[in-house]
Nucleic acid binder design. Structure first.
Lengths: 159, 159
DNA sequence: TCTAATCTTGACTAAAAAGTAAGGTATCCG
DNA sequence: CGGATACCTTACTTTTTAGTCAAGATTAGA
């Protein structure tokens, strides 16, 4: 189970754009340089984000990229979905749409796990915005800590 | 973000072995046939599981595989870790061990997300055993439903 | 209008994951 | 003891994903 390179760098690019002020833009070269990836690669990622409406771009000299919406209105689950189809894919669902048709129809014991984990991950991500990832006294950690202590309670209750 | 084919099929193989009684074994051919994968591929997976001590095998005719421990003593997080290094990998941690050295030391905004999600996923998985995946009236769903409603609460509280 | 800066797009190359094949070794049974 | 069955191990092929390159298209400003 892993997050793809595309997801990771795509998210990083958005984080660069998040602190920009009104009318400010970052060029592809600037973004790529800061991330240590090629401009070609960064261009591809930003094109995906642009197409999905997460960033907007201006062409020509003095052009560049910026967020299409406020940083506190962009949630992690949407970002991941844009960069990689869905927040959690498997053979179970990736080929055939959304967890329906499957070779093991009927006796597939792992379906509930995939579905359940998918939901756990999606909820955790839906609770985090780009804006939250910026602060130095990261309130992300408190958010995730809350979720963690919740599942710890759950595990305890079952035992 | 996705679960690899190796994780998915490895887990499925274990689920086949779980309901076996004392002294019963399944052969590679049987396992592969039921999953619709080649015996070569199944052999590879079971070898990994064997090496990790999750299944035990007997060679020669009348041989085969069975679980090395009781099904209710094998947890999902251990299985995934065995099949794929860790429950959740990213460029952040996969190369360099465990979330320490990173190109973006200092100003890496996504580190807390990776760490947090890793923990959420691991806890969710640690709360589920192979045995739980067998029942027809799957109590996995209740377990996961509890975790889900927990994170829903959390999201609500923050808002 | 010309030019330089910048985004856009598709084809190409390289790396990683998944899957396959084949020879080796242990066990049973006649 | 010898053949048949089934696990063990390494090396290879295919497929998928990631990353690069280069030419085209668009805009701002002189």
């Amino acid at each position: 189970m892993k997050v793809s390179a595309q997801e990771e760098y795509g998210l990083r690019c958005l984080l660069q754009l998040a602190p920009l002020g009104e009318g400010e833009y970052l060029t592809l070269t600037q973004i790529a340089e800061r991330e240590g990836i090629s401009t070609a690669n960064a261009g591809k990622l930003l094109w995906i984000l642009n197409k999905a409406g997460l960033v907007s771009s201006i062409r020509g000299t003095k052009g560049g990229y910026r967020l299409a919406r406020a940083a506190d209105e962009i949630h992690l689950d949407e970002i991941i979905k844009v960069l990689d189809e869905d927040v959690l894919a498997s053979h179970c669902n990736s080929y055939t749409g959304i967890l329906d048709a499957c070779v093991h129809t009927g006796n597939c014991g792992i379906r509930p796990v995939i579905v359940g984990l998918h939901d756990v991950v999606r909820r955790a991500m839906a609770g985090i915005t780009l804006a939250q990832l910026l602060g130095t006294e990261s309130n992300v950690e408190t958010t995730l800590h809350q979720i963690n202590s919740m599942s710890r309670e759950t595990a305890h209750r079952r035992a």
